[in-house]
Structures are given as structure tokens and as C-alpha cells.
Amino acid sequence: MPKAFPPEFRRDVVAVARKGEAPLSQIAKDFGISESCLHRWLKIADVDDGIRPGVTSTESAELRELRKRNKLLEQENEILRRAAAFFAKEIAPK
């Protein structure tokens, strides 16, 4: 997988592209990225800036973390459920 570009670099490229002083293909070539990458960055920036609807980068990261936390809690809950069942058998009258 290619190394991700720093956020500052992305912001600078998007800012230059939004000025509209040159075609996107030329801007992408000048910065050494693909044109499709530039289009994707512009789309993400538009969502983050509220220009177009969608889930922002911040919301997406938060959602990812919440899903990870939820999975961990479900695993912990399952362990406790099994432990409770095990110990219930141990103390049950015979």
C-alpha cells in the first residue's frame, strides 16, 4: 500500500485546486499524485467543509473507534456470561 500523504500536503493541494487557476490534471501532475486521487481529496474536503452532504472525516474516525469499542465490550460481555454460567454450575446444589 502506498504511503499516505500528510494532511498539510493534502490541504495545500486542495487549496490550489479550488483556486481553479489550472486544470486538475495539471495540478495532479505538478504535485505528483494521480488525478483520481485529487478528485477524491476534493470530494472529501467538500464533505468536511460542509459543501456537500456526507460523513465527515472526524465523524468517520469517531464511528470507527466506537465500533471497535463496541466489539470489545461485546467480547467482554460474552466472557462474563460464560464465566457466570460456569460458576453457576459449580455452586448449584447436587
Rank of each mutant, 00 (worst) to 15 (best):
residue 21 E to N: 03
residue 76 E to H: 08
residue 53 P to A: 04
residue 54 G to W: 08
residue 48 D to I: 07
residue 3 K to C: 05
residue 18 R to G: 04
residue 90 E to W: 07
residue 66 L to E: 03
residue 53 P to L: 00
residue 58 T to P: 04
residue 78 E to R: 15
residue 26 Q to C: 09
residue 64 R to Y: 14
residue 90 E to V: 15
residue 89 K to S: 00
residue 85 A to K: 08
residue 66 L to Y: 11
residue 16 V to R: 02
residue 16 V to E: 02
residue 5 F to R: 08
residue 20 G to H: 04
residue 74 E to L: 15
residue 12 D to I: 12
residue 3 K to L: 11
residue 43 K to Y: 15
residue 36 S to L: 08
residue 79 I to G: 06
residue 51 I to G: 03
residue 76 E to L: 10
residue 72 L to S: 07
residue 6 P to K: 03
residue 4 A to R: 11
residue 52 R to Y: 13
residue 28 A to L: 03
residue 91 I to H: 01
residue 48 D to R: 05
residue 5 F to P: 00
residue 26 Q to F: 13
residue 19 K to N: 14
residue 6 P to Y: 06
residue 69 R to S: 03
residue 67 R to A: 13
residue 2 P to W: 04
residue 70 N to C: 09
residue 17 A to P: 02
residue 28 A to Y: 02
residue 84 A to F: 10
residue 32 G to P: 02
residue 6 P to E: 01
residue 45 A to E: 10
residue 10 R to V: 15
residue 60 S to C: 13
residue 21 E to R: 13
residue 11 R to Y: 00
residue 67 R to K: 03
residue 54 G to Q: 01
residue 85 A to V: 06
residue 49 D to K: 12
residue 38 L to R: 00
residue 84 A to H: 14
residue 6 P to H: 07
residue 7 P to I: 11
residue 40 R to G: 06
residue 66 L to G: 03
residue 54 G to S: 00
residue 92 A to Y: 13
residue 55 V to L: 13
residue 92 A to N: 09
residue 44 I to P: 01
residue 45 A to S: 09
residue 11 R to N: 08
residue 43 K to M: 15
residue 40 R to T: 12
residue 23 P to N: 01
residue 8 E to K: 12
residue 53 P to E: 06
residue 85 A to C: 10
residue 59 E to H: 05
residue 90 E to H: 05
residue 23 P to L: 01
residue 2 P to E: 14
residue 93 P to A: 07
residue 60 S to P: 01
residue 3 K to A: 08
residue 53 P to C: 04
residue 16 V to D: 06
residue 80 L to V: 13
